[in-house]
Simulated scan of single mutants.
Amino acid sequence: MSKQRPLLVLFLLAIIFPLMTWGQKADRILIFTKTRGYAHASIPAGVEAMQEIAAKRNIQVDTTSNVEWFTSEKLKPYAALVFISTNGSVLNEEQREAFKEYIHSGGGFMGVHGASAGARTWPWYQEMVGGAFSSHPEPKEGVLLRGNLLHPINRDFPEHMVWKDEWYNFSQVEEGLTILLWADEASYIGGEYGKNHPIAWIRDFEGGRSFYTALGHFSYHFTDAIFRKHLEAGLLYAMGKDAETASF
């Protein structure tokens, strides 16, 4: 009997391990860069930065601008979808349904800069992102203010920082967001919110998770160490990782 025990253990592991891991998303992300109309020149720099951040975390990356990737089966392996300055309504109804199914099954979304300008005729997408882009002044310097001071995703961001960007205004901002960064409208001209102007946030949404940052208009932004930590923390949140114990 003792000789049979190792075989029994291996047999049980062969059954139990797949059951334990079934349904879990691997450490793999999909970077999506499709645009229709205006395309930010910073998109390649954003892709490169996210690839380097992922490599640091041993996360596998696929990158595409092909909307045919949006099927239930093709999206299933990904822990997060990363939209880098996507623009325009690019997904058809079937692809939108696959996207919704992905989020409803616990998937994560990360939107960078122009991602809030995508799918303006798709209310579900705007709600999932958390805000819909409406306008911005010419790029200029302003001051970023740290929002939720206690949230671990924010711990490496200074309480205030001078930053040059397109300071996005939004036609709507959803309720229930955890605001990570505010724009200090007293520091520049062109804001439309007054005291409370959100620029980056997170939210749980319909079974999934969403991180959005309006920063990232210029290519050089993606070499900034603080901004990279901001992106890294946002990615970990979107993937469902514990940012509190993550080492930056």
Score class of each variant (00 low, 15 high):
38 Y>P: 08
24 Q>L: 14
162 V>L: 02
146 R>E: 01
134 S>Y: 01
182 W>Q: 10
223 T>M: 10
119 A>F: 15
96 R>E: 07
213 T>W: 06
218 F>D: 00
210 S>F: 12
245 T>P: 01
117 A>Q: 09
220 Y>K: 10
77 P>F: 04
28 R>Q: 14
26 A>V: 07
19 L>E: 07
64 T>L: 06
143 V>I: 15
45 A>Q: 08
210 S>C: 12
118 G>A: 15
160 H>N: 14
76 K>W: 09
93 E>T: 14
170 F>W: 11
89 S>E: 13
226 I>Q: 11
50 M>F: 15
93 E>W: 02
19 L>K: 07
41 A>D: 15
75 L>N: 08
214 A>N: 11
222 F>W: 01
165 D>S: 00
135 S>Q: 07
120 R>D: 07
29 I>W: 02
240 G>L: 08
211 F>P: 08
137 P>L: 06
126 Q>V: 01
2 S>M: 10
115 A>P: 03
33 T>E: 04
99 F>P: 02
20 M>I: 13
37 G>P: 06
242 D>N: 15
234 G>L: 08
188 Y>C: 12
51 Q>T: 15
19 L>W: 10
63 T>L: 09
80 A>I: 12
231 L>D: 01
124 W>Q: 09
33 T>D: 04
32 F>K: 02
21 T>W: 09
42 S>F: 05
23 G>S: 03
118 G>Q: 14
175 E>N: 12
35 T>G: 06
18 P>V: 05
57 R>P: 02
115 A>Y: 05
37 G>L: 09
136 H>V: 04
38 Y>M: 12
66 N>A: 13
107 G>N: 11
247 S>G: 00
5 R>A: 12
86 T>I: 13
175 E>L: 02
234 G>Q: 05
194 G>P: 08
151 H>G: 00
197 H>S: 14
149 L>G: 03
13 L>K: 10
9 V>R: 13
54 A>K: 09
177 L>M: 08
239 M>W: 09
31 I>F: 04
29 I>C: 01
36 R>E: 14
53 I>Y: 08
128 M>F: 04
114 G>L: 02
12 L>I: 13
10 L>A: 12
148 N>G: 00
172 Q>C: 05
25 K>L: 08
27 D>P: 00
55 A>M: 13
243 A>H: 04
56 K>I: 06
66 N>G: 02
238 A>E: 06
237 Y>F: 15
62 D>R: 08
11 F>I: 07
46 G>F: 12
17 F>N: 00
2 S>K: 14
182 W>P: 03
205 F>P: 11
230 H>Y: 03
190 G>C: 10
204 D>R: 13
196 N>E: 15
91 L>Y: 04
40 H>K: 08
108 G>Q: 03
221 H>P: 00
5 R>E: 12
